[in-house]
Every structure is written in structure tokens, then in C-alpha cells.
Write a protein that binds this DNA or RNA. Structure first.
Lengths: 125, 125
DNA sequence: CTAGAACCTCACATGGATGTCAGAGGCAAG
DNA sequence: CTTGCCTCTGACATCCATGTGAGGTTCTAG
């Protein structure tokens, strides 16, 4: 498929797909006229890249990890696997923090609702 | 306390504290010479602000929610409470996605470890 | 009093993914 | 062939929290 279709299938802009290629995250075969062509596999790859971006990884970091996805080999395993474990832990810690934040918001909303309720009751009483 | 102390207590840069004030997130009393002074309460406020930033809220959004923190009143409750619920849901959804990403990383690491193991075994056998 | 640290304002820089525009070429349908 | 849409490269714009530096004032310790 061409880049427009990949974009619409993944929900990622054409601009971003070209950027991913520039960053070495995504490969494409070029037609004789220079247009990029992709296989169906790239759809999953792009959504995975998006997932990693959403997890706060930078292009550079993603580029380091992706070879590990492509073909698990000894060459990748050593450095990249440790890097991945490190990013996993960072992410896990971040998740913990976000959950704490969500709890804080929940508490805040409860407080406000209670306050509103008490006001309403006072009015009625 | 003055701004430097608040900064070191919260781990937030002086620059950022001034920025928070500029965005209406943080108030300070000024000494006659114009220096900012804060109470101990502000420490918690700043860390909460940081927490919200980390949760992906913008200054503007945080500014909308903070009045709800300061004093739960009818005036805040209506709009801000709904906004808060909305942000809470967004955050919750994001957490879900991050957990999915963490799982993906775990799976990836497991695959790589297994592959490495099988290679090692093959070598030995 | 003085040196140095902390503070003030103003303003410009940065990073990183993405938006957007310009100018040109490619490709399918009428 | 023409019309319209897609794609190409290249470059500049944007957002936004934060960094950084200049030039000046204030506070504190010796």
C-alpha cells in the first residue's frame, strides 16, 4: 500500500510516517518513481511505535529497541534487552504515579460532591 | 520561605515556579522589595501541580481545576467538576494504554530471553 | 562595608513530534 | 490530454514547559 493508506489505517499522519522513516523506525520500498510502498505488516509496526511514543519513549530510544522486535538475536539481546528492561521499569513507575494522580482526582471529586451535597441539604433543611 | 527554598523542597526549578505564577497556578505574597514569599502549604500545591503536569494536563487545564482544590464551592463545582471528571477519564484511559504497552514490553523481553536461552541450549547440546 | 549568593524582570533559546506550505512530479478516470 | 488526487522533498511554523543569559537589586555573612 502507499503512504496515504497506511496513514488512514493507523490513524497516523503522512507527515509522521515520513518522520518515522527518517528516524529509522520504519522502512519502505520505493517504486521506480520514488513513492513509498508498505506491506500489511507495517500497520502493526506503526501502531506499536505510536504506543511507545505514548509511553514517553523518544525516537532514539524506540530506534534502539525495534531491532529487538524485528529479530531476537544475540546481537540485540545484550544491550537492547537491558535498555528495554530499563524503559519498562521507568514506565511502570510512571504508571504508578499516574494511578496515584487519578486517586487524587477521585478524592478531590468526592470531596467536592460531598460539599455540594451538604450545601444542598443545608438549603433544604 | 523564598522561591529558592520552595524550589529545592519541591524539586521544581525557580524558573518553573515563576512560570506557574504567571499561569495563575501559584500565588505568592511579595515583600516590600518585590521578592516572592510562600507558606509551607505551597509545597504540597506545587507537587500536586507537578503531578497534574505529569498526567498530561496543560497549564490552562490545571488552572481550571485548581479553584476546585482551593475551596469546594457551588461556583466551582459545576463546570470544573465536570472538567475534572473528563480529565480523570482521559487519564484512566491513558493508564490502561500504558499498562498494555508495559505488557507488550514484557512479552517482548520474554520472547527475547527465550530465544537467547534456546540458542544457548543449542550451543551446549 | 563588602563579597557573594539569591532574587527580580525581560527576552530569547531549546527540544521533539507534528502541522503546513510551496513547487514539482505521478497516476487513474473521463 | 486534462482534471484531480496522491506523493515527493525541503523548509519553516507551532506548541509549551523549561533553560539560559543579561543587567540590576536585595539579602546575608564576614
Amino acid at each position: 500500500m502507499r503512504i496515504g493508506e497506511l496513514a488512514s489505517r493507523t490513524g497516523v499522519s503522512v507527515r509522521s510516517l515520513r518522520y518515522y522513516e527518517e528516524q529509522g523506525l520504519l522502512a519502505s520500498t520505493r517504486s521506480s518513481s520514488g513513492q513509498r510502498h508498505y506491506t500489511d505488516d507495517e500497520v502493526g509496526r506503526v501502531t506499536f511505535i505510536q504506543r511507545l511514543y505514548a509511553a514517553g519513549l523518544s525516537s532514539r530510544t524506540i530506534a534502539e529497541l525495534l531491532p529487538c522486535v524485528d529479530s531476537p538475536s544475540m546481537a540485540n539481546s545484550d544491550a537492547a534487552l537491558e535498555r528495554m528492561a530499563q524503559e519498562r521499569d521507568r514506565l511502570s513507575q510512571h504508571i504508578t504515579e499516574l494511578i496515584r494522580t487519578r486517586d487524587a482526582l477521585d478524592g478531590l471529586m468526592a470531596t467536592n460532591r460531598a460539599h455540594r451535597e451538604s450545601l444542598r441539604t443545608a438549603m433544604a433543611g
